[in-house]
């Protein structure tokens, strides 16, 4: 399910740029250390596969699927999560 990000430099993409249905692997979680810690505690740890399931009807927040859990996260928060770019 999870794979480690290869060490080779890749282009970063913020999680909120993923289209609904798209998946990618988390590279880093930025922003306020408290916010980053909380997101990581909920499973958004670097190396984890994450899928954007859908956007809310008004476009924000987005539904994520990570470690068998579904989370709703505002786009302002998703901007802080960097994922691999394919």
């Amino acid at each position: 399910m999870k794979r480690r990000a290869p060490p080779a430099a890749r282009v970063l993409r913020a999680l909120d740029e993923l289209r609904p249905g798209e998946s990618s692997v988390i590279l880093s979680v930025d922003g306020d250390p408290q916010v980053a810690r909380r997101l990581m505690e909920l499973g958004l740890v670097p190396g984890t596969l994450v899928q954007v399931v859908r956007r809310a009807p008004l476009g924000d927040p987005v539904e994520l699927r990570v470690r068998r859990t579904h989370l709703s996260i505002r786009r302002s928060e998703a901007e802080l999560v960097y994922v691999e770019s394919h």
């Binding site: 306020d32 408290q34 916010v35 909380r38 997101l39 909920l42 927040p61 539904e63 859990t69 579904h70 989370l71 709703s72 996260i73 505002r74 928060e77």
Partner: peptide, 10 residues
């Protein structure tokens, strides 16, 4: 609160 993440339970 700075974070509005919320679980969408089954």
């Amino acid at each position: 609160r700075k974070l509005y993440v919320m679980e969408l339970p089954p």
